[in-house]
């Protein structure tokens, strides 16, 4: 019988949600439609219809040296075309956002190729070839990992993930890249990820309800599912803590553990 990765310990809904996001065999549920041009406008790296900027000629035109790794690894579409590096960055509220920065890192590494990601307390950046970043962004914006009220596309001035939500249930954004439309109950992006106003807003639809968010969220919270409720997770974290404390980077040298 082959090895089956567990992805994450635990049996609570939060653990199941983490496993779901990390498992590349499981599809992310698509919950909204956003066009390619709208993604391009939100990212601001180029105008819709404009050619992708490049830093080198297409790989086919380059005389690359013999290298077994180059033969082994299939380049991404962006790398093949020689695209320049671009980024997209997301902020996730601590108030039951559909995902969280560190979960994003695990998820990206399992689901996407050709990217560099960085985790900070309230935001998660992806760097990669421009067309790959646009493709990844589209998946991340149209599926269940994005909620227009609790997740933000924020290239700069990201502050807000640990701030209380406003009266409409929206995460604070000093640049107000998105607005809640009280008449329709939907959220519209009116600025791109760096805070420049866009000619046309991008509609993200209605935010998920609190109940749905609690159901999907991979965040342990005392007012939701507490970390201490999941025995297996606590056991794993305590084991890592113990091994790290006693043996630093050489946990294998501890006898009996």
């Amino acid at each position: 019988m082959g090895y089956e990765p567990n992805f994450y310990p635990g049996t609570t809904k939060v653990s199941e949600s983490r496993k779901h996001y990390m498992d590349p065999e499981e599809d992310l549920e698509k919950i909204r439609e956003i066009s390619d041009d709208e993604v391009t406008r939100l990212l601001h790296h180029r105008e819709p219809g404009e050619a992708f900027g490049s830093v080198h000629p297409p790989l086919e035109e380059m005389d690359e040296p013999d290298c077994p790794i180059r033969e082994l690894v299939e380049p991404t579409e962006g790398a093949k075309a020689g695209d320049r590096i671009a980024y997209v960055q997301f902020t996730d509220s601590v108030y039951f956002a559909p995902t969280a920065p560190y979960i994003r890192a695990w998820m990206y590494m399992n689901r996407f190729r050709g990217l560099d990601t960085g985790t900070l307390s309230g935001r998660q950046i992806i760097e990669g070839r421009l067309r790959d970043v646009e493709e990844m962004s589209k998946k991340l914006l149209t599926t269940e990992v994005f909620d227009p009220a609790r997740t933000g596309i924020r290239g700069a001035t990201v502050h807000g993930h640990a701030v209380r939500l406003d009266e409409n249930g929206m995460m604070f954004d000093a640049l107000q890249r998105y607005k809640f439309n009280e008449e329709t109950g939907e959220v519209e992006y009116v600025k791109n990820q760096v805070g420049e106003p866009m000619d046309e807003p991008v509609n993200f639809g209605k935010p998920l309800s609190e109940e749905e968010l609690i159901e999907r969220s991979p965040i342990f919270r005392e007012d939701g599912i507490s970390f201490s409720d999941d025995e297996e997770v606590v056991k794993m974290v305590q084991r890592i803590h113990k091994l790290r404390t006693l043996a630093g980077y050489k946990p294998h040298e501890i006898e009996g553990e």
Binding site: H44, G155, T157, Q176, K179, V194, G195, E196, P197
Partner: peptide, 14 residues
């Protein structure tokens, strides 16, 4: 706008 490529541009906020 305090940071990033749009630094210095107006920041309309309702």
């Amino acid at each position: 706008v305090p940071y990033g490529p749009a630094k210095g541009k107006d920041n309309p906020h309702s």
